[in-house]
C-alpha cells in the first residue's frame, strides 16, 4: 500500500473492520481498510453503493466503533480532538429551515460553546469564501440547491475543524452545478488547507478532486487500492480530457471490475 509515511500521517487506519449486528444477523460493512492520509490531503473514497464508504466516515467521526484494526487520528505535533475537530457535509444540505443562513452556519459553534462575536465574524468570512456574501440573512428556502450546499460547507468549517468529512455532498445536484461545485471545493480546500475525506460514487469526480484516491469494492466490502493522483493543481475542467486523467479513471474502472 502506498500512502504518507505511516509515522507522520495525520490519519492512520490499519486493517479496520466493522460488522453490523441486527437481530442476530451479521453484516460485514467494512473489511480490512488500511489507509494513511497526510495533513492537508483531499482523499476521494470511491466505490459502488454498499461498499462501506459511509461507514468509514462514521468511524472517523467517532460515531461508530470498529471491531478490529486500529484507527488513529492526529500526531503529537498536530493533535486531534475527536469531540471538536470534525466537520461534516452530507448529500442533503440539512440546513435548519427556521434559521437564517448565518445562524445555520453558527450551529457547530453553539454546540461547542465558542465565543459568539468571534464566531459570527468567522461565519461571515466563510460565507464570503463560499460565495454567499449578501445571503447571510436569507432563509434556506430562498437559496438554490447549490447555494444551500455552499452554506453547509461553511457550516462544516466554522469551528475550524482539522478534518472535514464529505459524504457525496454534490450527489443531489444537477450535472452542471456539480462541476461548478467541484471547482469551488478545490478553491475552498486550497484556501482552508483542511484534510478532507470525500466520499463519492462518481469515478470522474474522485479523480478530478482527490490528491489521493481510495477505491472500495462491495460484496464483501473491502479496500481494493489506494494511490496518489499525480495531476497538478489548480485543476481545471479541461483536464478531464487529458490523457493522464483517463489513466486514473481506467485504473478505477478496472478495480471495480467494470472493464
Amino acid at each position: 500500500m502506498t500512502g504518507a509515511h505511516a509515522t507522520d500521517a495525520f490519519i492512520r487506519l490499519e486493517n479496520v473492520r466493522k460488522v453490523y449486528r441486527t437481530r442476530g444477523q451479521e453484516f460485514l460493512a467494512v473489511s480490512d481498510v488500511t489507509l494513511n492520509v497526510a495533513a492537508g490531503e483531499l482523499v476521494s473514497l470511491v466505490g459502488p453503493s454498499g461498499c462501506g464508504k459511509t461507514t468509514v466516515l462514521k468511524i472517523l467521526a467517532g460515531l461508530h466503533g470498529h471491531d478490529a484494526g486500529s484507527v488513529e487520528i492526529g500526531t503529537p505535533a498536530d493533535p486531534f480532538d475527536p469531540g471538536r475537530d470534525i466537520g461534516m457535509v452530507f448529500q442533503q444540505s440539512l440546513l435548519l429551515k427556521w434559521r437564517r443562513i448565518i445562524d445555520n452556519v453558527l450551529l457547530p459553534t453553539e454546540i461547542l460553546g465558542l465565543p459568539r462575536a468571534e464566531s459570527r465574524d468567522r461565519a461571515r468570512d466563510l460565507l464570503r469564501m463560499v460565495g454567499l456574501e449578501g445571503f447571510e440573512d436569507k432563509f434556506p428556502y430562498e437559496l438554490s440547491g447549490g447555494m444551500q450546499q455552499r452554506a453547509s460547507i461553511a457550516r462544516a468549517l466554522v469551528h475550524d475543524p482539522k478534518l472535514v468529512l464529505m459524504d457525496e455532498p454534490f450527489g443531489a445536484l444537477d450535472a452542471l452545478t456539480r462541476e461548478k461545485m467541484n471547482l469551488e471545493l478545490l478553491r475552498i480546500w486550497s484556501e482552508s488547507r483542511k484534510t478532507i475525506m470525500f466520499v463519492t460514487h462518481s469515478i470522474q469526480e474522485a479523480v478530478f478532486l482527490g490528491s489521493r484516491c481510495a477505491v472500495l469494492t462491495a460484496g464483501p466490502a473491502r479496500m481494493a487500492d489506494n494511490f496518489e493522483i499525480d495531476l497538478p493543481y489548480p485543476r481545471l475542467l479541461d483536464m478531464k480530457t487529458h490523457e493522464n486523467f483517463g489513466v486514473y479513471t481506467r485504473r478505477i474502472y478496472k478495480l471495480l471490475g467494470m472493464e
Binding site: L63, M88, L107, I111
Partner: peptide, 14 residues
C-alpha cells in the same frame, strides 16, 4: 429529524 443531522451534531458531542 434527519438522522444525518443528529450525526453532524453528535460528532461534536452535542
Amino acid at each position: 429529524v434527519e438522522p444525518e443531522l443528529i450525526d453532524l451534531v453528535r460528532a461534536l458531542k452535542a
